[in-house]
Design a protein around this nucleic acid. Structure first.
Lengths: 137, 137
DNA sequence: ATTTACACTAACCAAAGGGAAGTAGGCTCC
DNA sequence: GGAGCCTACTTCCCTTTGGTTAGTGTAAAT
């Protein structure tokens, strides 16, 4: 395989997007849906723990209302990020697990988690010095 | 300095977090602040265009109210992601640019942008088939 | 017979967010 | 010399979103 197929020139992602406004809009739309607190947390929990029932998922995420959990998980299902399996038993049993696409998104977010971990000290410091600057303003 | 202090064994991020609930909480806090639509979009625009004035930044982000842009950018400043330079002139002139930390966060998010780009077709398809399934329910 | 378990809805209320108008104050233009 | 203009906000009001609480259905357990 040649090292670089090179359609015309080498373009960065943003250059490609500038050339294709439709792509830009779509990517933006996806980001808007995915850049959601509960989606990110659900993604992490599901990535870490695998297949989970509704309430267990909620427990592990922590602090999420049932309403938002339902909504988040439905949205993720609609976007093809999670698979929802319903067992028609009583009491109801529903299990959620990541699809391949969901897992790949989790992998993409991995960089953000490690960034947060690495930079937590710097952020703490930045917040403190900002507060001080702001206080004396 | 030894190449690897290695507290006890090699741990994944999630294992490390499970062992340290305070770290977990802090990372979660950071994620909650950073996993915000406007923050992510501002980050991208600033990464792509460099130093920008307030209204130009808003234009490039698109669809953001002045109120939210102010809030977002202030929060990013407080977290040490952007540098805010005020020129005391009239009419006012304020410029924003990413700090090193902001740029490193942008780099971390890069994986998510490319994911969105790569998976846009799959998401579109997933949404459509979900709608159909949902309609006949 | 009453309680419990579980995955949701529905109703209600608080909070976040959008839209539009207001602000400051040197500058330009008549 | 006075009437706007320019820009980065800020404030007010109203809509949308999110959280809280209270159901709901049914079969097994008590």
């Amino acid at each position: 395989m040649a090292p670089n197929p090179k359609p015309r020139k080498d373009l960065t992602r943003s250059e490609r997007e500038r050339e294709d406004p439709e792509l830009e809009a779509l990517v933006r739309d996806i980001i808007e849906r995915v850049a959601d607190k509960w989606t990110m947390l659900a993604l992490e929990v599901l990535e870490e723990h695998g297949r989970l029932r509704f309430s267990r998922l909620g427990e592990l995420i922590g602090g999420v209302s049932q309403k938002m959990l339902t909504k988040t998980v439905r949205q993720m299902e609609a976007d093809g990020l999670v698979l929802r399996t319903i067992y028609p038993v009583i009491p109801p049993r529903v299990e959620y697990e990541l699809t391949d696409m969901g897992r790949s998104l989790g992998a993409a977010f991995c960089g953000v988690w490690t960034w947060a971990e690495k930079n937590r000290a710097a952020i703490k410091k930045a917040r403190k010095s900002f507060q001080e600057r702001d206080a004396e303003r």
